[in-house]
């Protein structure tokens, strides 16, 4: 056991994902030896994030105002919504520079085994956006896992009767990958979704 203030920080750090006692100790002693202003800046960043960041009232992305910067951007195409599982996924899709519509963060995926059903996700909020925003296409960008696929199937079943085009991100071979290592499911999907050249 270290002196109380040091041990307290180690215990707090060790509660973070992927950080064990040893890593927590290393970080704590690092912070003990850096300039006080650096340590204070880190502490302030944590506090500021917790105090200022909330969820966008429209798409549930993280933001520091009522609506996120994407929802506020009038140049974005309001007719297309890209549905993702987590707020982190918005950044990933944005990095492609291929999508100019808006987003909707579900807050997870349907996982019957874990007891997560449609009621636990922000599906009702998504349906409520369709008419007022004039949405015509919903792109389902959930993970290509059983849970993500189940969510996509459920969304298609709920949204298609509303006259919307529901599309799913294509599954296939990663760029730079080796055909030899492709599994049957992925390769099967890549084949069925092949494109004419």
């Amino acid at each position: 056991m270290f002196e109380a203030p040091v041990q307290k920080l180690i215990d707090e750090l060790a509660r973070l994902p992927g950080i064990g006692q040893k890593s927590a100790q290393r970080i704590a002693f690092h912070l003990l030896h850096v300039e006080e202003t650096d340590a204070r800046r880190l502490a302030e960043a944590v506090v500021e994030m917790r105090e200022r960041v909330r969820l966008c009232a429209r798409c549930f992305n993280v933001t520091d105002s009522e609506e996120c910067s994407i929802c506020r951007d009038l140049r974005r195409d309001p007719s297309a919504i890209c549905v993702v599982e987590r707020a982190q996924d918005v950044v990933v899709v944005e990095r492609t520079h291929e999508f100019r519509g808006r987003y909707h963060v579900l807050g997870g995926a349907i996982s019957p085994i874990e007891g997560v059903g449609p009621e636990q996700l922000r599906l009702r909020e998504l349906i409520a956006r369709i008419e007022p925003e004039g949405v015509t296409e919903v792109i389902v960008a959930t993970n290509p896992t059983v849970e993500g696929d189940t969510t996509a199937l459920y969304l298609a079943r709920s949204l298609k009767p509303l006259g919307l085009t529901v599309t799913r991100l294509a599954s296939g071979l990663p760029v730079g990958g080796d055909l030899d290592y492709a599994d049957e499911l992925t390769l099967g999907r890549a084949l069925s979704g092949r494109r004419e050249m």
Binding site: P112, I113, V146, T150, L153, L185
Partner: peptide, 27 residues
């Protein structure tokens, strides 16, 4: 290596949900 992937099951919402219950019970 895959012995059986059940690809058709995965494309049907009701079948996936039924499979979810089957798995939960044996689990």
């Amino acid at each position: 290596s895959v012995i059986e992937a059940y690809p058709r099951l995965r494309g049907d919402l009701d079948k996936v949900l039924a499979a979810g219950t089957m798995v939960e019970v044996v689990d």
